[in-house]
Nucleic acid binder design. Sequence first.
DNA 1: CCCGTCCTTGCAACCGCTTGCAAAAAATTT
DNA 2: AAATTTTTTGCAAGCGGTTGCAAGGACGGG
Lengths: 325, 325
Amino acid sequence: MVSLKDVAERAGVSRSAVSRSFTEGASVAPATRARVLAAAEALGYRPNLLARSLTTRSTGLIGLVSNNFQNPAFLEIFDLFTRGLQERGLRPLLVNLTDEVDPARSVGLVRQYSVDGVIVASSTLPTAFARAFRDAGLPTVLAFGRVAGESGVDVAAIDNVAAGQLAAKVLLARGYRRLGFLGGPEAATSTQDRLAGFRAVAGDVRCTFARAYSFGAGRAAMQGELGDLCEGYFGGDDVLSIGALSALRDAGREVPRDVGLVGLNDMAMAGWETFRLTTIRQPFAEIVAGVLDMLAAGLRTPGKAPEVRVYPCALVERGTLRPPV
Amino acid sequence: MVSLKDVAERAGVSRSAVSRSFTEGASVAPATRARVLAAAEALGYRPNLLARSLTTRSTGLIGLVSNNFQNPAFLEIFDLFTRGLQERGLRPLLVNLTDEVDPARSVGLVRQYSVDGVIVASSTLPTAFARAFRDAGLPTVLAFGRVAGESGVDVAAIDNVAAGQLAAKVLLARGYRRLGFLGGPEAATSTQDRLAGFRAVAGDVRCTFARAYSFGAGRAAMQGELGDLCEGYFGGDDVLSIGALSALRDAGREVPRDVGLVGLNDMAMAGWETFRLTTIRQPFAEIVAGVLDMLAAGLRTPGKAPEVRVYPCALVERGTLRPPV
DNA sequence: CCCGTCCTTGCAACCGCTTGCAAAAAATTT
DNA sequence: AAATTTTTTGCAAGCGGTTGCAAGGACGGG
């Protein structure tokens, strides 16, 4: 492994000179820098960022933590995050928190790697996790979390209550009367908020909670409904809704004629011709951009007051809701 | 940030003693270690792994590189990799190589972070990438690559040629006569090998290549076929096949009666009741375990000779192929 | 009680890089 | 040409750890 010293020797300068040649705007004569860069090039030298981080106190590492590795929506989200981070010269350290229950352990884990900040990408991870990172002094931003109330961390998300309201309004406007809520994990804030909004508009609704955001869970939940079906359903998310849709179709129920279904997310799959799921779009790209923006701000200004960015969501019309009456 | 020095002071010992207290099997009196650990606990100290790596020359960081962020199969794969790495005390540095064409740049990137090794998880990334990592002196293992020929790196994968043969045999055994190949990106070794195997058994077949492993690409490709349909198709992978399936169904073709379709991967979605795709299973979990195993060996023994592990694949019977005649 | 062993411990150097500071060199002024 | 200012450079210390080495202590045997 070629180091600063090797380059310095080859270029006939001190190690400091080499170091400065590699830092933007450092005081070094153009000629020297040229010589150094040439030597570095010849030797195939690349500065060791981790060693550098010891003095600069910044690694460029960002903990990307999630517990959502079954929902295809998250592949889209990881794609956006990884690309976005890379564009900013940051590197995602992926942390899979599936089945993890102890925030302290996760904190220890990312701290040992001196990450500069952490992104919590999940709507089902208990808020204790995000708070734990924050309390450890790490700039933390929560994607897809709860926007109301004081979480103490940056949040970028839609207003899930509003989304629930929108779902209810739309279902009613399309003439569906008895409404049902087919939520994700009951404990998740996203589920609670969507339900709250849904209820605020639709009043008393039937509630079922799936054990996870997955096709199987959605299908099973809907199969449980078949005995006494509501007219319109708000599915906790797209993949859940797609599972529900399959149950309905297999049972011979006509969607959208007999029963209406609206999902949430607008993941790529919702648009697949097989499903044509009418859904409420959650603007992933914008949310991710917002997260990165706040993260960058948090890195620049440690101790910055937490910020909440709320993104609008809108109905995407496809085939699982009948047209307005 | 509390460091070695702080703990040493509080425990009334030298920094070395603290360091040793934290390394397995180092020479330190039990009583001292206890005192040190107590002090560390009280201060909330955690050793800085990156600083440690400077002398130990091992960061525990593993580059997990892929260019496959649209295919839901890869979410399953990332899940397996991240969990498997975490269990071994390693951390995945996720590198998204979508649209990247220059191997050198990727190498520089992971080298700057002194990763201990890299996992290339892709069947479409040019082999030049894996080789470039290897040439940079990094233990590299390629998941889902080509198993034949000398790549110079560890490989864990199925034998794609055999998979192609299996697909052809099965299709013929089910009485489908004119066969078509609906492959992924033409340049990918996986596509070439699957086709080669397919042809070896089925002889002259119709060939179409989708531009990516995606629903849309599969659907579009199959729509192109509709004018002059073959009887049986081997889809380059499940998501492609599912796209193709949707095109067939929408066109009113009866699957499996009029046309048969067999996919490859057996991703979770293939089992969804909506699709019930008959497919050739690629044992993800076993492959990932093999990758991690070889990676661990590579970390232990630098310069270890590259190894190739071939995993068997088998037909998973569902609804898109008629029963044997 | 003295001595040889073995276990513990601290010192100091080092991993690869950054940076404040003061000296040296170059450029400007007078 | 001397004096002053500005730029460039190297030194040395430090970031948070590890580790070879030699000195100090504890312990058992003679």
